[in-house]
Design a protein around this nucleic acid. Structure first.
Lengths: 137, 137
DNA sequence: TCTTGAAGCTCTAGTTACTAGAGAGACTAT
DNA sequence: ATAGTCTCTCTAGTAACTAGAGCTTCAAGA
């Protein structure tokens, strides 16, 4: 049995976040001490690790909730789990594409300024003047 | 002079968001009608466009606040504006790198599952078992 | 056994950038 | 004048935490 501090160290999740996950119904300690402190069993820790891993991958808590529910029923078809992962992959790929477009424009803006004062600053100008933007939002 | 609806159409910012920016002190209409409705002048619209453009680039409202403040004082050195843009560029580049790493892992997870039920589902397994993760968070 | 300092408890409120909805008033075209 | 659209303010909700107050419990040493 581990205290919340030990659970935090083992999983890399901050203490208040572990408590927050509990209020969200994602992971509760299986016991409390006589003085009402949380006590985590190894399976509790594994559940937290699962959540941490999924969060690191950028999955939403709602998705994680569903995956946890699925993993508690090992006889169900895993199509749902695959769909969650595949959908998220697509979302990540889209975000990468968008960010790369932004990078291009930002790079142009941030490197294009040779002025000394704001009056002739390309950064300000580029943000003010839509025509300077090559990608036309 | 434009109504808030016209301002919204011209800038592409939703009406409630325009009002929100006003509560945040970013952009207020220069007048109100006799019936207390917002009336935006062309410079007001330009300011909203500046904000929209900067938001599309992912700048935070606090950064935009500072840039607006700077652009109101054209005699100031533009080093601050450059720094905001350059810092943001670095942040975007870092996010791209992280997302690409995630994409690799997610792709492996999402495509690796050949099982039929959750019990043998690679998605669930990969999230549960740290050892399967090649990048070691 | 006592004590002390670290760790834990609950609860409330704040963060970011909006979004939704209620209920009332204003504007415009016929 | 009136219908229909637009706008007003205000409150509360969203995601995923984070910070702080004020209090209690735990573990280790004297």
């Amino acid at each position: 049995m581990f205290s919340i501090g030990a659970a935090s160290r083992k999983t890399g999740i901050k203490i208040p976040t572990i408590r927050y996950y509990e209020t969200e119904g994602l992971a509760s300690p299986s016991e409390r001490s006589s003085g009402n402190q949380r006590r985590y069993s190894p399976p509790d820790i594994a559940r937290l690790t699962f959540i941490k891993h999924a969060r690191d991958l950028g999955l939403k808590l709602d998705d994680i909730r569903e995956l946890l529910h699925l993993s508690a029923n090992p006889d169900q078809p895993c199509a749902v789990a695959n769909k969650i992962a595949a959908d998220h992959l697509v979302a990540v790929q889209e975000r990468i594409a968008k960010l790369q477009a932004l990078e291009t424009e930002l790079s142009r803006i941030a490197h294009g300024c040779t002025g000394k004062t704001v009056g002739e600053c390309y950064v300000i100008e580029a943000l003010s003047d839509h025509a300077l933007c090559q990608q036309g939002h």
